[in-house]
């Protein structure tokens, strides 16, 4: 019985965005990373192209995390005290990118000044050859100051800077424009808002191949389904040819899944949760796997074992690409 496999012919494809710049391109990275370019749904290579596999950005902080899960701190060891050493380790684990959250700039916390934060970013750039994604940790009001300083201090490195939100995108985008960076446009789990922000950012003059979309991440058990649907809708819209939804997508799987109770609580763990260390790990990899299947192009991760596992998942699904 002859079965004719239905094949979708899509009108559009995801835009390619290259992160990082080598010496000849005005930066200091030893290599660049290109994401996007897909002309089909995730990994469906029988009907379309996957020119670039999704990539892993290992998350580091610019200051030692104090409230992370003991599982995580145990696996990371002493490097969490030194962002540069941490980034180096991440490179060894097989990170494609470094995702750096500037938590120290939080006015309710350490309240580190933008200049000082930018210095830490520079120290990480010096330590590794990987391209960087830098996220503010100072809140919607103060992030622009921090990110603009980082943009200036790292001129030409083609970092991804974010999150740029509807209330603060202008300054951040201007910083990216002036200093040769890429913006990550953040919206709270809504296709239309994501599209709208992309339009606004483009209107300021940033070319669409310098925009990454962060549609907000819900971890497993904490809104994963909303996140899956918004990413799937964005991706379908991109493939159908809507150019303002064709930006590559980033999902902060590491940050969101390690914030959950399941990953953090180490005492009084219910028996039905099983081994606590294993559960935290699988919570992160299940979140990441599900988001990759929805259409994420960049996933952030925290645990070195998750990095190894998701790397093999991407290798298997991207085989031939």
């Amino acid at each position: 019985m002859a079965v004719e496999i239905p094949v979708e012919k899509w009108a559009g494809k995801v835009r390619e965005v290259t992160i990082g710049a080598t010496a000849s391109e005005g930066g200091t990275r030893s290599k660049t990373v290109t994401v996007g370019g897909e002309s089909t749904l995730p990994f469906l290579q029988f009907e379309g192209q996957l020119p670039h596999r999704p990539v892993i950005a290992v998350e580091i902080h610019d200051a030692e995390p104090t409230d992370w899960s003991p599982t995580l701190l145990g696996a990371l060891g002493d490097v969490v005290k030194d962002p540069a050493a941490w980034a180096k380790k991440a490179e060894e684990w097989g990170a494609d990118l470094i995702f750096m959250r500037l938590v120290s700039t939080n006015p309710d916390g350490e309240n580190r000044k933008p200049e000082a934060a930018a210095e830490v970013v520079k120290s990480v750039l010096k330590a590794v050859g990987l391209p960087l994604i830098v996220y503010g940790g100072a809140g919607i009001e103060h992030n622009p100051d921090v990110l603009v300083k980082v943009a200036q201090a790292t001129e030409g490195e083609r970092l991804v800077l974010g999150p740029a939100e509807d209330k603060n995108y202008r300054t951040i985008v201007a910083g990216c424009l002036a200093h040769g960076h890429i913006v990550s446009a953040f919206t709270p789990m809504d296709l239309n808002l994501a599209k709208q922000l992309n339009i606004l950012v483009s209107d300021v003059g940033l070319s669409p191949d310098r925009i990454i979309v962060d549609p907000n991440t819900g971890a497993l058990g904490y809104g994963l389904e909303y996140c899956v649907s918004v990413i799937e809708r964005l991706r379908l819209s991109a493939l159908q040819g809507d150019s303002m939804t064709q930006m590559p997508i980033i999902s902060l799987a590491g940050e969101e899944s390690w914030r959950t109770k399941e990953s953090k609580v180490s005492e009084g763990v219910p028996e039905a949760w099983g081994d606590f260390a294993e559960l935290g790990l699988i919570w992160e990899t299940t979140t990441a796997t599900t988001l990759l299947h929805s259409g994420a192009d960049i996933v952030t991760l925290r645990h070195p074992k998750s990095v190894a596992l998701i790397k093999s998942v991407i290798d298997k699904l991207g085989k031939g690409a």
Partner: peptide, 28 residues
């Protein structure tokens, strides 16, 4: 779970695997 299974047969019983999968299923 995400892409189209009707029945999933796991090789072993492990709550640290079962709980995330049941949660994913509940979500999706």
């Amino acid at each position: 779970v995400a892409k189209y299974a009707g029945v999933i047969v796991l090789n072993s019983f492990n709550p640290a695997v079962a709980y995330p999968l049941l949660t994913e299923r509940l979500n999706l």
